[in-house]
Nucleic acid binder design. Structure first.
Lengths: 156, 156
DNA sequence: TGACAATATGAATAAAATTCGCACCAAAAG
DNA sequence: CTTTTGGTGCGAATTTTATTCATATTGTCA
């Protein structure tokens, strides 16, 4: 699907996605046009899904994170859609087992959190919810460990 | 901290972070140099934390997500560090209540997941763990709802 | 070996990034 | 009521990058 040069390019972009293509080319030791071509193909193949800016949540009244375990009674698709529609909801995962969904939230404070929870409880299919408020986030990344695909792959 | 133009710029970058600055300038109707200046200040102030490439996890043997509730007995800082050091671990949150940490994982398959779990259980301070395997992820975003800061702020 | 597909290169051109002097505006100071 | 000052936008000039394309190069397979 991709070779070491692709991995190298992805590692660079994973670090700083907005650096110029010419700089990437220098770092991998190839012509800019060749690197551009590779990046385009990675995008076409869906390996690169997009580029994002990482914002400081605290600057946008989003300092409080929480996880909500939502136990449902079967109406899963609708419930999921309703949960996903809430703008404070950042993630909705359907999990194996009794708790139907695991929802990740981001809000300004406890008051707003309470408001969202009052909004989730009466949703169709929701039997009960259990909330876990985050005190401190120790790690939060979305990086993929590309070293494992490189050849010098050490594992976790 | 920032005005409507900043918000507009951030909205554009949140959508497609790798588009040229000149294009951003066109969309907000300002000179490229002015937009560049604003973006730099947003970076300096820590409002913009960085730029990332979003990769397709399935392409990197990371198709399986799971959440692990880790109950600890007080040795929190060390436990957190040990959890965060595991490369499959994408997030470590210290939560309020009996379950000390909530950990988000990404692995290739059930076998690898089992391996990671066997790795977590004997960590210092870990009393018990409870794992929730993700069947399907319905929503997964990190976007900040900037509309609320814009003036036309509708809420969740 | 020869054909083919994929990919790299380097030059040429268009576009973008970056710098910087100047203008403008608003708020604080005189 | 002026003057000063800090912040910001503008546009021209320059450097750097993106993009295209014709031309090699490489590797595979029949």
């Amino acid at each position: 699907m991709f070779d070491e040069i692709d991995i190298h390019i992805l590692e660079i972009l994973q670090e700083k996605a907005r650096i110029p293509n010419a700089e990437v080319a220098r770092q991998v030791g190839m012509a800019p046009s060749a690197v551009l071509e590779r990046i385009r193909k990675l995008e076409e193949r869906g390996i690169i899904e997009g580029y994002e800016v990482r914002l400081n949540p605290a600057c946008f009244h989003q300092g409080l994170s929480a996880f909500v375990q939502v136990e449902t009674d079967g109406t899963d698709a609708q419930t999921a859609a309703a949960l996903a529609a809430i703008s404070s909801v950042q993630e909705v995962h359907q999990v194996v087992g009794p708790d139907g969904f695991l929802v990740k939230l981001r809000t300004a404070d406890h008051t707003t959190l309470a408001k969202i929870l009052r909004q989730i409880r009466p949703l169709p299919g929701v039997r009960s919810i259990r909330t876990q408020v985050v005190l401190e986030t120790v790690k939060e990344t979305r990086r993929v460990d590309l070293a494992e695909h490189n050849g010098n792959g050490r594992h976790s």
